[in-house]
C-alpha cells in the first residue's frame, strides 16, 4: 500500500517541484520584462498609461506602459492600437483622443464599462488629468501626463 502510494507520488513530487521553479522563474521574468524603459527613454514628453495591477496576477499579457500618441484605440481585438486580451474588455473598448493639449477618454459602448476614478464613463468623452485612475475589465491604469509639468 505504502509502496504504491510512494511510487505514484514521487512523479507528482518532481512535477510539482518543477512547476514551482517554473512559476518562480516566470514571475522573475515578468519582473525583468516590466523594466521596459523604451517609453520613458524615448518619449518622455508623451503622456502614457501606467499599469497599477501586479502583472503576475493577470493571466494575459499587459505591458507596464502604453504611450499615448495621437488617437489611440484600446480593446481586445487585434485592430486596436493597444490590445489587451482581458476577457472583461470589449473588442473595441475605449478611445483616447488628444485635443487642445489635453487627452480625452471615451468609452465605446463597452459591455463592462470604463471607470475613471471609480465613476463609470457616460457616452461623452472625459478629460484626463495627470494621475487619474482608469479601470477597465481587470486592468487598472494611471494616466501620467509628463508634458504638463515641464518647465
Amino acid at each position: 500500500m505504502f509502496e504504491i502510494l510512494s511510487t505514484v507520488l514521487k512523479y507528482i513530487f518532481v512535477t510539482i517541484i518543477y512547476l514551482f521553479i517554473y512559476s518562480i522563474i516566470r514571475l522573475i521574468y515578468l519582473d525583468i520584462r516590466s523594466v521596459d524603459t523604451s517609453v520613458r527613454k524615448r518619449e518622455k514628453h508623451v503622456p502614457y498609461l501606467k499599469l497599477i495591477n501586479r502583472r503576475e496576477d493577470l493571466s494575459f499579457k499587459v505591458k507596464e506602459h502604453y504611450a499615448l500618441n495621437g488617437v489611440v484605440l484600446l480593446g481586445r481585438s487585434g485592430k486596436n492600437d493597444i490590445v489587451i486580451a482581458d476577457p472583461y474588455i470589449s473588442g473595441s473598448h475605449a478611445r483616447f483622443t488628444p485635443r487642445d493639449g489635453q487627452y480625452y477618454i471615451e468609452d465605446l459602448n463597452s459591455t463592462n464599462g470604463t471607470f475613471v476614478n471609480d465613476t463609470r464613463l457616460k457616452n461623452e468623452p472625459k478629460v484626463l488629468r495627470n494621475g487619474d485612475r482608469i479601470q477597465m475589465g481587470q486592468v487598472e491604469f494611471v494616466f501620467v501626463d509628463g508634458s504638463r509639468h515641464k518647465r
Binding site: 516590466s34 523594466v35 521596459d36 524603459t37 517609453v39 520613458r40 518622455k44 514628453h45 501606467k50 499599469l51 497599477i52 495591477n53 501586479r54 502583472r55 507596464e64 506602459h65 495627470n130 494621475g131 494611471v142 501620467v144 501626463d145 509628463g146 509639468h149 515641464k150
Partner: peptide, 28 residues
C-alpha cells in the same frame, strides 16, 4: 518598476525632473 533600471543615479535625475509629481505614480 521601470525606475529599477536607473542603476546610475544620473539617469534617475532627469526622470524625476520631467515627471514631477507623476514620478510617484511610477511604482507598481
Amino acid at each position: 518598476g521601470p525606475g529599477a533600471d536607473g542603476s546610475e543615479p544620473a539617469s534617475v535625475v532627469p526622470e524625476a525632473e520631467i515627471h514631477g509629481p507623476g514620478a510617484e505614480l511610477d511604482e507598481p
